Simulated scan of single mutants.
Amino acid sequence: MSSFSREIRSFLVVSQSDSIRAAAERLNISAPALSRQLQLLERSYDTKLLVRSAGGVALTAEGAALRDEALRWMAADAAFSKRLQQAGKKTDLRLRLGVMEGLVGTLIPRLTTRLEALYGDVELDLAVGTTGDIIAHAEALELDMIVAFNMPRLSRLVVVETQEYHLGAVFAPSLPLQGDGPLALATALKYPLCLPSSALSMHTRLLAEILSERINPRVRISSNSISALLTFLRQGAGLGFLTWPDVCADVEAGTLCFRPLANRRLTETLSISICRGNNLGDTTGVVVREISETLASLGR
C-alpha cells in the first residue's frame, strides 16, 4: 500500500510523460479523469503545476519543485518500509560458540554487532580455551560452531572454511623493531621471549624454528594463555610470536606492533567448523557467512 495520495502518484507519472493522454494510458484511466486529479492537486497547493499546450505538457517551476520533493518523499518512505520489514523478520539467536582465547577480543565484538543487526537480541554462549578444551565441549554436545586454529578432523565436526595466517613477531612500540618489512628470526631472538607453552598448537613448530637458529633464547614467560602473553608484551617485557587475528585489535589501538617473519613458513590454519546436531537450524549458513566476513574484515 502506498503512503502517497493518488493525485501525487498520478502527477509523477505525468511529469515523466509527453502528454496527459500518454500518462493516462500508463495509469489505465481516462484522460479527463487524470485531468481532474491534476486540477485537484493544483487547488490543494493553490498553484499552477503544469502548462498544457498542443505540443504536450510541461512542468512549471512549482511543478518541478513538487516533483523533486515527491521523489525524495517516496525514496524515504521506501527505505523506512524496508527497515520495518527487516525489523519484523528479526528473531532472537542463541549461538554456542567454541573459540580460541586469542580471538575473543578481536572476532567476538565485531561478530556480535553483525549478528545483532540481523537477529535482534543475540546470546553468545562462549567456550574459550585451547583446541583440546574446545574439542571436549564439542564432544559433550555443548557447541553449535567452532572457530579455532589447527582443528583435527573429527566425525562430529564439519569444517566449512579454513584460512591460513602467518606467525609474526609481536612487541610493544617501545622496542626498537618498528617497521613494515619482514623481521629476521635471528634478530627477534636477541630479545627476551614471551612464548606459547606446549598446550598451544603452535608451540612445537615454533620451537623447532627457534632451535634451528642455534641461538639460546632468553625466555621471559611461557603460557597457555594468549591473554597472559599479550599482557606481558604490552608492558614491553619481551617479544612474542602470534598470528594477526590474535593481535590486530592491539595493533589498531597502538599498544602492540606486528611484523611478519622473514623467509619462514610458520602458519596457523584457522577453521570454521559446524558441530553435527547443532541447534542453529536454518540460520547455520547465515552465521557461517557472518563469521567468515568478520574474519576477513580483520585484514592480513
Rank of each mutant, 00 (worst) to 15 (best):
E164Y: 11
L189K: 12
R156M: 14
L141R: 10
P182L: 09
H166Q: 13
I134C: 05
S155C: 13
P173Q: 15
D180G: 10
P173I: 09
T131M: 04
F171V: 06
Q178R: 14
K190S: 13
E161W: 12
A188P: 04
I134H: 02
L154R: 06
I135V: 13
G181T: 04
V159S: 09
V159P: 05
A169H: 00
V170D: 04
P173G: 14
A186F: 07
E142D: 10
L167F: 09
T162P: 03
E161F: 12
L177R: 03
G168P: 02
H166I: 05
L177A: 11
V170S: 00
A186Y: 06
S155P: 11
G168Y: 05
L157I: 04
F149N: 03
L157V: 04
L141A: 10
A140C: 09
A140W: 01
P176N: 11
P182I: 07
E139M: 08
A184H: 07
P176Q: 10
G179Y: 07
A148Y: 00
G132C: 09
D144R: 01
S174L: 14
L189A: 11
E161N: 10
R156P: 01
A188I: 03
L167H: 06
L183K: 00
Q163H: 13
E142A: 13
E161K: 09
A136I: 07
V147G: 01
A140D: 08
L157H: 00
A188N: 01
R156H: 09
A138S: 10
V158S: 12
V147D: 00
L175E: 02
L175F: 02
L154M: 11
L157M: 07
A148G: 12
P152F: 09
R153S: 13
I146R: 00
G179H: 07
I146P: 03
L154Y: 05
Y165H: 15
A148S: 14
P173A: 15
L185G: 05
E139G: 08
V159H: 05
T131Y: 02
L185F: 12
P176I: 08
F171E: 00
L141K: 07
P182F: 11
M151F: 05
Q163N: 08
H137Y: 13
G181H: 08
V159Y: 02
A169R: 00
V158P: 01
V158L: 13
P173C: 11
L167D: 01
L189M: 13
G132I: 06
Q163V: 08
P173L: 14
A172L: 12
